[in-house]
């Protein structure tokens, strides 16, 4: 298990430098490792907490007295999971051949360079002045763009889509994500109403018994 993980990690380094080739191997030649993906995602969540607290003073605009590690962690990884779910739900309808685990590995593998760059930025942000901070922001932006490129390439391969279809699907994914959030909020509100009704009913019942 551990050995496999290490081996796949080594292959991950190949994947992020040769995305089309690499993701093909991951998707079709058994180089997929969901555990590795999960570890990267959890590390990314942890990095979000570290980023909140340990980014250097000059670049850090987070109110420390309002810090909540659990919400920071959840909000750090939530967008990616949401993206996976909504992409899967869209592509499952439109002849995407990727399974959920394929999408998940693509997104999390693609997150790896961003993870490394962000970690480096957190460290470097403690030794830069305000003028040099723009360089770090540029690096961070590069990480985000590279992540987007890797996800795009990975999804193309995983779903066996052409580039044009893939762009349409990614736009559809964002629409689906908004719908999912809307439904989730609706669901939570309704459940809250039901629960509060039950609680009121129960307390009333007990008082009048």
């Amino acid at each position: 298990m551990m050995k496999k993980l290490l081996e796949d990690f080594k292959y991950l380094l190949h994947v992020i430098t040769h995305p089309f080739d690499g993701f093909y191997e991951v998707r079709f030649r058994g180089k997929k490792n969901v555990y590795l993906g999960a570890i990267i995602l959890i590390l990314y969540g942890l990095l979000a907490i570290i980023k909140y607290q340990y980014t250097g003073f000059i670049m850090n605009n987070n109110p420390m007295f309002r810090m909540n590690s659990i919400t920071t962690f959840l909000f750090g990884i939530f967008p990616f999971i949401l993206f996976c779910i909504s992409n899967w739900s869209v592509t499952a309808i439109f002849e995407g051949s990727g399974k959920f685990s394929d999408i998940f590995t693509v997104v999390t593998y693609a997150l790896f360079p961003k993870l490394v760059l962000d970690a480096v930025i957190v460290i470097l942000s403690n030794v830069v002045t305000k003028e040099e901070a723009t360089i770090l922001s540029a690096i961070s932006a590069f990480g985000a763009v590279y992540f987007a490129f890797l996800v795009f390439a990975g999804l193309c391969v995983a779903h066996e889509y052409t580039a044009a279809t893939n762009i349409v699907m990614i736009i559809a994914t964002f629409v689906a994500a908004i719908i999912i959030i809307f439904l989730a909020i609706l669901y939570i509100t309704l459940i809250q109403k039901v629960v509060s009704f039950a609680v009121t009913f129960g307390s009333e019942f007990m008082k009048r018994w």
Partner: peptide
């Protein structure tokens, strides 16, 4: 004050 902190930090560095 981040601007002045940056200046002071530059000198310190």
């Amino acid at each position: 004050d981040k601007t002045y902190y940056s200046t002071a930090f530059g000198g310190y560095r």
